[in-house]
């Protein structure tokens, strides 16, 4: 598994897409930090960028990588290597590569300009989002035989989580605003890793007051230590669950 991951990383490093991604993040982070005097303002802007770009790049890059590595996988399945270690090796290789890019692109600027706990939380949710979207990417690439369909499904997933889902939540809140929705709002946030990541950061920034009543509910729940454990474990579920389904499909897949 680790050997496979090694070759995957070796392969990714030469594709240069990853280097472009790191440089892009680096550029965005440095320009955001140098534009504002107050580093926490820049952190909010950076968060908005991270919440859009990181999931998108993670899911699309991983999906295209998986299809391009199909020949490599075909070569490996005829060898005495279990299917699980092939898929997990691929996952590990892609994950380490993308996390390194994020660490360089966002981690270094944050370390220079905002080396506090908020910056750390931003990094943690960026990492968790990267992993969960790679996991989702693996699910769609294993489920779809056709490359175009797989990439399409990945794009749909990203679009759903970053745009459509928020619209749906807003719709629910509007149509049921006569009822007490505090618990429902928290439950709804758990079903979207991007929302979850955003809430964790916003709670840390102490600007929940700007978000009105919902903010207060969030603050009460996600601000507590139980809330932190809860949100981190839900994030973990978002990483593990799609990968487990992908693993189940891959074990029985005809290559």
């Amino acid at each position: 598994m680790f050997k496979i991951a090694k070759y995957v990383m070796y392969d990714i490093l030469r594709s240069k897409v990853l280097i472009a991604y790191s440089l892009f993040l680096l550029l965005v982070s440095f320009s955001l930090f140098s534009m504002e005097e107050n580093s926490s303002k820049s952190l909010i802007s950076l968060m908005s960028v991270v919440m859009i770009i990181v999931p998108l790049v993670s899911i699309i890059f991983s999906t295209t990588y998986f299809y391009n590595a199909y020949q490599f996988i075909e070569l490996l399945v005829a060898q005495p290597i279990s299917r699980s270690s092939i898929l997990l090796g691929e996952f590990l290789g892609v994950s380490v590569s993308l996390l390194t890019a994020l660490l360089i692109g966002v981690g270094i600027p944050v370390l220079i300009y905002a080396p506090d706990s908020t910056g750390l939380v931003l990094m943690i949710s960026g990492f968790a989002l990267t992993l969960s979207f790679i996991s989702l990417a693996f699910f769609s690439s294993v489920a779809m035989r056709d490359k175009a369909k797989g990439i399409g499904m990945s794009l749909m997933l990203w679009f759903y989580f970053s745009v459509i889902y928020d619209g749906l939540v807003l719709g629910i809140l509007f149509s049921f605003n006569e009822y007490p929705l505090e618990k429902a709002v928290i439950a709804l946030a758990s079903f979207n890793p991007i929302d979850l990541g955003r809430i964790i950061i916003l709670m840390k920034m102490d600007i929940s007051a700007l978000m009105g009543l919902t903010g207060a509910v969030y603050k009460q729940f996600f601000g507590s230590s139980f809330g932190i454990i809860y949100s981190l474990s839900i994030m973990l579920m978002w990483i593990i669950f799609p990968l487990l389904i992908a693993l189940r499909i891959f074990r029985k897949k005809n290559l």
Binding site: D11, Q71, L75, A78, Q79, P80, I81, S82
Partner: peptide, 20 residues
């Protein structure tokens, strides 16, 4: 999967990682 240690396979059309 271990039984494949004893099998050598030559495919009809070999697919290999292209940039290797």
């Amino acid at each position: 999967f271990r039984y494949r240690e004893n099998i050598g396979y030559m495919p009809q059309i070999g697919h290999y990682p292209e940039n290797m």
